[in-house]
Computed example of a mutant assay.
Amino acid sequence: MNLVYRVTPKQRLIIVEDALKQMEAFAQHWWSDREAGGVMMGRHLLDSHDIVVDEISTPQYTDRRSRFNFFRSRKHEQVARQRWLQEHNTSAYLGLWHTHPERDPTPSGVDRNDWQQAVACDTYEGDRLFFPIVGTHCIRVWTLSRRGALRELKLENTNAQK
């Protein structure tokens, strides 16, 4: 099942089942599980204004991972760029995802700084990026616009989460 989040009254963020399952596979259910993350790629739908996350990058061997920290290496950018080229310039960079060892995850100061850096420095379509955090029992998503407005998105299909 897809997860659907409300971005604006006319726009939704849709995380498709395959991408969702990949993110959930890295949820930190055990003390030995380390934080994981990557980039999200997908499409801006022209007919509905919706944004669809079709796929994600998964942890790379060059990442630094521990129980409470994750440092995303440049390898994720290479994965996203390669996918963009393979898809004939139609697979868009949509944001960054990562895990937290919390039932109901909340962003840390490091997370917020990372997101601000991504919005200010990364190349992307539209006026915002998306930032899911995968917890042990739910996935919460924030968006940050180029204007600096950070807010959490509301999940529309609540039966889709654990």
Rank of each mutant, 00 (worst) to 15 (best):
M1N: 12
N2H: 06
N2A: 15
L3Y: 03
L3P: 00
V4Q: 12
Y5P: 14
Y5W: 10
R6M: 09
R6I: 01
V7Y: 02
T8H: 07
P9D: 13
Q11C: 06
R12P: 06
I14T: 04
I15F: 02
E17C: 07
E17W: 03
D18E: 13
A19K: 06
L20C: 04
L20E: 01
K21H: 12
Q22S: 12
Q22W: 07
Q22Y: 11
Q22R: 15
M23H: 05
M23Q: 03
E24P: 05
A25T: 12
A25H: 09
A25V: 06
F26M: 03
A27H: 06
W30M: 13
W30Y: 10
W31T: 06
S32Y: 14
D33Q: 06
D33M: 09
D33P: 03
D33G: 05
E35H: 09
E35D: 06
A36R: 03
G38V: 03
V39C: 04
M40D: 00
G42R: 03
G42M: 04
G42Y: 04
L45Q: 12
D47K: 12
D47S: 10
D47F: 06
S48L: 10
S48W: 03
S48Q: 09
H49R: 15
H49A: 11
H49S: 13
D50F: 00
D50L: 04
I51Q: 02
I51Y: 00
I51V: 15
E55Q: 14
E55R: 07
I56L: 00
S57G: 10
P59Y: 01
P59C: 01
T62G: 07
R64W: 05
S66Q: 06
S66K: 02
R67Y: 10
R67H: 08
F68Y: 11
F68G: 09
N69C: 14
N69F: 11
F70R: 05
F70I: 02
F71Q: 14
F71H: 10
S73F: 00
S73L: 05
R74Y: 12
R74E: 13
R74K: 07
K75W: 03
E77Q: 07
Q78G: 08
Q78L: 13
A80T: 06
R83T: 14
L85T: 08
L85G: 05
Q86A: 14
S91M: 15
S91I: 05
A92M: 15
W97N: 02
W97G: 01
H98G: 02
T99L: 02
T99K: 00
R103T: 14
R103N: 11
R103L: 09
P105M: 05
T106K: 08
P107L: 07
S108L: 01
S108R: 01
V110L: 08
V110N: 08
V110R: 09
V110F: 06
D111I: 07
D111K: 09
R112H: 08
D114L: 07
D114E: 12
W115A: 01
Q117C: 08
Q117S: 13
V119H: 15
V119W: 08
A120C: 09
C121D: 12
C121L: 14
C121Y: 15
C121E: 15
C121K: 11
Y124A: 04
G126F: 01
D127F: 03
R128L: 04
F130N: 00
F130M: 03
F131G: 00
F131K: 03
P132E: 12
P132K: 08
P132M: 07
I133M: 14
V134A: 00
V134M: 02
G135I: 14
T136G: 01
T136Q: 04
H137T: 13
C138S: 08
I139M: 11
R140I: 13
